[in-house]
Simulated scan of single mutants.
Amino acid sequence: MNESGLEQAPDDIKLAVDLIYLLESNHVTPETVLKALEIVKADFERKVDSQKS
């Protein structure tokens, strides 16, 4: 995806690209990334659930 295509992309795609760049630039291992993403996902799922109530 070129830069102008990324500008037109949905926010979730833009965020994913930024996160991938950040993690790869800092040489974070894939195993560490996956463990961290599980924690982040659980946290945000709790936030979504608490907003529903």
Rank of each mutant, 00 (worst) to 15 (best):
M1D: 01
M1A: 07
N2W: 06
N2E: 07
N2H: 07
E3Y: 06
E3P: 13
S4T: 06
S4M: 11
S4V: 06
G5Q: 14
G5M: 07
L6S: 01
L6P: 03
L6R: 11
E7W: 05
E7S: 08
Q8E: 14
Q8S: 15
P10D: 10
P10H: 12
D11W: 06
D11I: 11
D12T: 09
K14V: 04
K14H: 02
K14L: 09
A16P: 01
A16R: 05
V17P: 08
V17A: 13
D18I: 10
L19R: 06
I20D: 00
Y21T: 15
Y21D: 15
Y21C: 07
Y21A: 07
Y21L: 11
Y21Q: 11
L22M: 08
E24A: 10
E24V: 10
E24M: 10
E24F: 04
E24Y: 05
N26R: 13
N26V: 00
N26A: 11
N26T: 04
H27C: 08
H27N: 15
H27I: 07
T29D: 07
T29W: 02
T29A: 14
T29I: 02
T29F: 09
T29L: 06
T29M: 10
T29K: 13
P30T: 05
P30C: 02
P30I: 09
E31P: 01
E31F: 02
T32P: 00
T32V: 12
T32M: 12
V33T: 07
V33N: 03
L34H: 04
K35G: 13
A36R: 08
A36W: 00
L37V: 14
L37Q: 02
L37G: 07
I39C: 01
I39V: 07
V40I: 14
V40W: 05
K41D: 09
A42P: 02
A42D: 13
D43R: 08
D43Y: 06
E45K: 05
E45P: 01
R46W: 00
R46V: 10
K47D: 10
K47W: 00
K47Q: 11
K47G: 03
V48L: 15
V48G: 08
V48E: 08
S50L: 03
S50T: 04
S50P: 01
S50N: 07
Q51R: 13
S53V: 08
S53W: 05
